[in-house]
Simulated assay, not measured.
Amino acid sequence: MGMPRTVSPVALTVNAGSSSLRLDLVRDDEVIHELYVERQAPGPSAIDRTIEGFLGDAPPCEVAVAAHRLVHGGDAVRAPTVADDGVLEAVRRFADLAPQHVPPALALVEAARRRLPGVPQVLCPDTAFHARMPEVAATYALPAGWRSTYGLRRYGFHGLSYAWALQRAARLLGRPAETTQAVLAHLGGGSSVCAVRDGGSVDTSMGFTPLEGVPMSTRSGSVDPGMLLWLLSGERLTLDELSDGLQHRSGLLGLSDGRSGDTRDLVAAGDPASALALAVFAHRVGREMAAAATSLDRLDALVFTGEIGWDQPEVRHDVCQRLGLLGIVPPARDQVDDDMIVSAPGADVPVLVVRPREELQLAREALATVSRIT
Rank of each mutant, 00 (worst) to 15 (best):
G159V: 10
G156T: 03
D85V: 13
R197I: 00
G159M: 12
Y155R: 06
P104Y: 09
L70F: 08
C61L: 12
Q181I: 00
A163P: 06
R147F: 13
R115G: 03
Q181V: 06
P120C: 07
A107G: 15
P59Y: 06
A182N: 00
L160P: 11
L70H: 08
V87C: 14
V109C: 14
A169W: 01
P117L: 05
A185N: 12
A64N: 07
L106N: 05
L152E: 04
A90H: 03
T127F: 11
P125S: 01
A177V: 01
E135D: 13
G145I: 07
P125W: 10
Y140R: 04
G56P: 05
L160V: 15
D126E: 05
A107K: 15
V91W: 09
V63T: 15
P60V: 11
L184H: 04
W164V: 07
Q100P: 08
Y162V: 04
T139N: 14
G56A: 06
P120V: 09
S161I: 02
G156D: 07
A83W: 11
G74D: 13
S192L: 07
L142M: 13
L116P: 05
G74C: 01
E62N: 03
L97F: 15
A64C: 10
A185P: 05
T127Q: 11
R197G: 00
T180S: 02
G74E: 11
A195M: 13
